[in-house]
Amino acid sequence: MHKKVAFIGSVGSGKTTIINNLSSINALNTDVKSSVDIGKEMTTVGIDYGHIVIDQETTLGLYGVPGQRKFSLIWDFVKEGLWATVILVKNKDQDSLNELKHLIDYFEINENTLCIVGITHVESGGGRSTMKAIKKLFLEQGISPPVYTVDARLHSSAHLIMRTLIAIDESK
């Protein structure tokens, strides 16, 4: 069975990095040079696609979408038929937090959705205030997904997210 996992979050939250890290194939990336200052050189305008083989019967398709709302065309086709959603939030970034509510609504995340939130760009021991703000926002929606700090650059950190998703799914 091919299961579809979406990686969503604001610009620069680490979606492309985490997919490159997790994928067992060369990930498909659609990054282009940014023409405005967004705090980094490249930005995703199409889709990132990676692939993980879990066992003989299960593969995960990893779909990263652009962070900018104007690319919601891509959001529309990625959100169909999702098995799980990973939301990445940049630590101490108000724009990233502000975008969270919009993403929850757009991707129709509710108590039945398999979902994990990863806080990225965290210095060691940090991320507490962002975690508190995220949990508060989700509670207001009546949802309480696991929230972790994650280093998108580290394979082990990225894998923890996938293992957690699988564990939650199996415990249902």
Partner: peptide
């Protein structure tokens, strides 16, 4: 804005 976003996405996908 929509035309620009769509052409940007489609071109990036086509390039990939």
């Amino acid at each position: 804005d929509k035309l620009s976003a769509v052409t940007s996405s489609l071109t990036a996908l086509s390039k990939a």
